[in-house]
Design a protein around this nucleic acid. Structure first.
Lengths: 401, 401
DNA sequence: CGTTCTTTGTTCGGTACTAAATTTAGAAGC
DNA sequence: GCTTCTAAATTTAGTACCGAACAAAGAACG
C-alpha cells in the first residue's frame, strides 16, 4: 500500500529537489522549477528565498519573456556538491568524480580482482582513496555492480559472475567511507543517468538496452527506475530464445546472451570460420569492417535475434522509446538493418512506430551512471531511503538557519 | 520527475485511505491503520476522530491484546458506498455491483455487439441502466476492456480486436453517467483486484497471468499496477516465441498466443487429430479429461511453451510470485507438469525458487476487477487522477464538518 | 500485589506545503 | 501613450501532516 502525501520525511524534499534541478537542468526560473517539480509557485518562492539567504543560490539575469513578466533565472552559487561514481567489473573499478551538473572532473581506473576472497576489502580501500582525493563537498558515492542489489539504500549484492552471494557491500562501504553510499545494478545506473541527463528529460517511460559482454536492460516507468522485487529486474540477457543453444553463464541453454553477447558472437564467428579457434572478438570486428560476408552474417544473425527478443520486451513493458548503449554499440552499424527488420516484424501493429535510439558510448559512462544514483536522490525519496535523506542533508550544509 | 510530498491535493488522502482500508481490509485498530497506510498514529487519531463525528466510522469491540494496551477496532458504520464494475467483451458486457469490501451484491450480463458501429452508444445505455439500478451510495464505475487504455482517469481506448481506435470511451461514459468512471485494460483490472483483495496483501511485486482466449499479463510493482507509456504494458500474448507459426490476431506470426491461446490449442488439437476439423475446444477438454494422449500432448506442448516464455517475463520483471488466472485455468492440471518443468529449466538459478499460484476462477471475476479500480482509488492518487479525487470526495459525503 | 514491560492511543507544537488573491513587469493592441 | 493582456513572483491565511512526549490499559514477573 502506498503512502499518501506526507508533510515531512525529514530533510525537506523540495529544497533538495530545487538544488538538484538547478544542478542537473541548469539555471531555471522559479516558475519553471514549480512546473517541473510539480509544486506550487508559492513553495518555490519560499524555498528559493531561504536558499538565497544561505548563499547556495543566486539570481541571474532575466530572460526576454514572450508576453508576460520576464522570468528571473536562478542558478547554483558554485558547485554546491559533487559525487563519486564507481563501476565494478571482474577485474577493475572505474571511478569518476562528477559535479552536480554531471560533468566529469576526474576519472581513473584501478585493478581489482573482484572474484577473489579479498574483493570487498580491496574495493573498500580503493573507494576510500577516491573519497579522500575528492575535492570540495562530497554528496555521496554511487556504485554500479554487475549483479542484483536488494535496494539502493541497502546494498546486499548477488553477483553470480563475481561469485558474490548476499554480500553486504553497502553496509561495509558505508562504515568505511562515512558518506552516503547508494548501490545498484550497473544497467540500472545507466537508466538512472538517462532519466537525469538523457532521454528521461523528454520521456517518462523508456527502456535502456546495453550491448557488450552480456545484454542488459533497464526499465524506467513514470520517471523512476523499476527494479523488481529483489532488484533483479531487467535480466533481458537470459530471455530464453531457443530450446537449446550454447551454455550460458547462468547455467542454462538457449539464453539470448548466449547468442548475442560477446562470447556468443565469438562462437558464431568461429563456427562460420571468420575467426580461428583462438581468435578474439577484435578479429571479428576488423573482418566486419573489411566487409567480410561471414562476419557481417554473424552480426546480422545476432541483430535479428535481438530484434525479436526486444519486441517481446516492448510488448511487456510498453516504453515510449528504446535507448541502446554499451561497449558493443560501436559495431551497431553491423546489427542495425537485420535488427530493425526483425524488431518491426515481431511488433504488434500498434507498437510498430516505436523508436530506438543509439547513444554514443564512452568509457566513463558506467561510472557516471553510478554517480547519478547520488545526484538523482533529491528526486527519488522512495528508492534511496535513508541514504537519500543523508545526501539531501548534505546538499544544504553551510549557511545559518 | 516525481512530485515531493505535497500537503493537499484536495480531498484529504488519508481520510479516504482510512475509509478504503476499513472497507477492503475490514475492521482494524488505529495502530494497524497507521502501519498499513504508512502514516503517523497521530494522524490516524485526528482523522478517525473526524470520521466518527461524521458517523462514517464507529468503534467496535476491543481485541484481547498480546502484551500491551488492547486495540480498539474501528469499522465502517454501514456500507459507506459501493461500486459498479463492467467487463466489456466482443459480444457482451458483464456487470457487477459490489460493496466496499468487495462482496458482489448483484451480477448480470447484457448482450452487446462491441464490434458494431453503435457499440459505444449501446455501452452507454447499458451502464446507465446499471447505475440507475444501483442501490445506495455509488462511488463510481470501473470498466475493463480488452485493449489499451491511455489512462484510468481518461479512457481513450485502442482495442484492435473490437475495431476500436482511439475511441473516447471514458469521456463519453462520464458525460452520460455523471459519476466517476475509471477504465483500464481487463488484465490490469484483475491485477488491481489482486492488490486489494488477493496476493497484493502479502506481496508488493507480482505478476498476474491470464489464460483464456488469449494470454494476458498484469504487472504490479511496489503495490501499483504498472501500465507502461500508453497503458499497453503486459502484452505477453504477443511475445515472439518462434520465427514462424500460425497467424495471430495481431497480424504477426510466431506469437505465444498463437500456440497457447484458445485458437492455438484448437489448431494443435486438430493437427493431432484429437478434434475434427469443425470440432470445438470443448471436445479437446473432454478428451483430455478422458485421458486421451493426444489431447494431453496438446496441453503439455502449450505448457512447455508458456513456461519458457514466462521465464523470460520473470527475468525482465523480477516479481515475487506469479498468479495464474482466467477462464482457461480450469484445465490447468493438464498444463501444470510440462509448464513447471520448462519454467524452472529456463529460469536462472537465482530465480528458480519463485512460486506460481493458481487462483480459482469465477465468471464474475473480470467485472469485480473492474469495480476494484474504483475501490482502489483511495490508495492510488497517481493513476486515478481527477476521477480518483471525485471518488474520494464521494466517500465522505453526509455529515456536517 | 505492586513493578515493569509492551503496545495503543492522544495531546501539542511545529512545519512543509497549498490555493487564492495580489503585485510586478514587460509585450501587444489601437 | 494609454490601456489591455500575459506570465512571473509574492503575500496571506490556512491545512494536512509529523515527531515527541505522554497517558492509558492490560500482560508478565517477582
Amino acid at each position: 500500500m502506498s503512502q499518501p502525501g506526507q508533510a515531512t520525511t525529514r530533510g525537506d524534499l523540495v529544497r533538495a529537489a530545487v538544488l538538484g534541478l538547478l544542478g542537473t537542468r541548469g539555471p531555471s526560473s522559479r516558475a519553471d522549477i514549480a512546473r517541473v517539480l510539480g509544486v506550487s509557485p508559492a513553495t518555490v518562492t519560499q524555498v528559493t528565498k531561504d536558499l538565497m539567504a544561505r548563499r547556495l543560490v543566486t539570481e541571474l539575469e532575466s530572460v526576454p519573456s514572450q508576453g508576460g513578466r520576464p522570468a528571473r533565472l536562478l542558478g547554483l552559487v558554485d558547485s554546491a556538491g559533487g559525487a563519486i561514481g564507481a563501476k565494478v567489473t571482474a577485474d577493475h573499478v572505474r571511478i569518476v568524480s562528477v559535479g552536480l551538473d554531471g560533468t566529469v572532473h576526474a576519472s581513473s581506473s584501478v585493478d581489482l580482482d573482484a572474484t577473489g576472497a579479498r574483493a570487498l576489502d580491496d574495493l573498500d580501500e580503493i573507494l576510500l582513496e577516491a573519497v579522500r582525493a575528492h575535492e570540495g563537498p562530497l554528496l555521496g558515492v554511487g556504485v554500479g555492480l554487475p549483479g542484483a542489489v536488494d535496494a539502493q539504500a541497502s546494498g546486499i549484492v548477488d553477483a553470480p559472475t563475481l561469485g558474490w552471494q548476499r554480500l553486504p557491500v553497502g553496509p561495509r562501504l558505508r562504515q568505511t567511507l562515512q558518506v552516503p553510499v547508494l548501490l545498484d545494478n550497473d544497467v540500472n545506473t545507466l537508466a538512472a543517468a538517462e532519466t537525469l541527463y538523457g532521454r528521461g528529460r523528454e520521456h517518462e517511460d523508456f527502456i535502456v538496452v546495453t550491448i557488450g559482454r552480456g545484454v542488459g536492460l533497464g526499465i524506467v516507468q513514470h520517471g523512476v527506475v523499476s527494479r523488481g522485487a529483489h532488484g533483479g529486474a531487467g535480466e533481458f540477457g537470459h530471455t530464453p530464445v531457443a530450446g537449446d543453444g550454447p551454455l550460458c553463464g547462468c547455467g542454462n541453454r538457449g539464453c539470448l546472451e548466449g547468442f548475442v553477447g560477446e562470447s556468443g558472437l565469438l562462437d558464431a564467428a568461429r563456427a562460420a570460420g571468420v575467426v580461428g579457434p583462438r581468435g578474439s572478438l577484435r578479429t571479428l570486428v576488423t573482418a566486419a569492417h573489411a566487409g567480410d560476408p561471414g562476419a557481417l552474417g554473424v552480426y546480422a544473425d545476432a541483430g535479428a535475434l535481438l530484434g525479436r527478443a526486444l519486441a517481446g520486451a516492448v510488448h511487456l513493458l510498453d516504453p515510449e522509446v528504446v535507448v541502446l548503449l554499451g561497449e558493443g554499440i560501436d559495431e551497431w552499424p553491423f546489427w542495425e538493418s537485420s535488427f530493425d527488420e526483425a524488431f518491426r516484424r515481431h511488433l504488434m501493429p500498434a507498437r510498430r512506430g516505436i523508436r530506438w535510439i543509439v547513444e554514443p558510448w564512452s568509457e566513463d559512462q558506467w561510472a557516471v551512471g553510478a554517480a547519478s544514483l547520488v545526484l538523482a536522490s533529491p528526486f527519488d525519496a522512495v528508492s534511496t531511503g535513508r541514504e537519500g535523506e543523508l545526501v539531501r542533508a548534505r546538499l544544504q550544509i553551510s549557511g545559518a538557519p
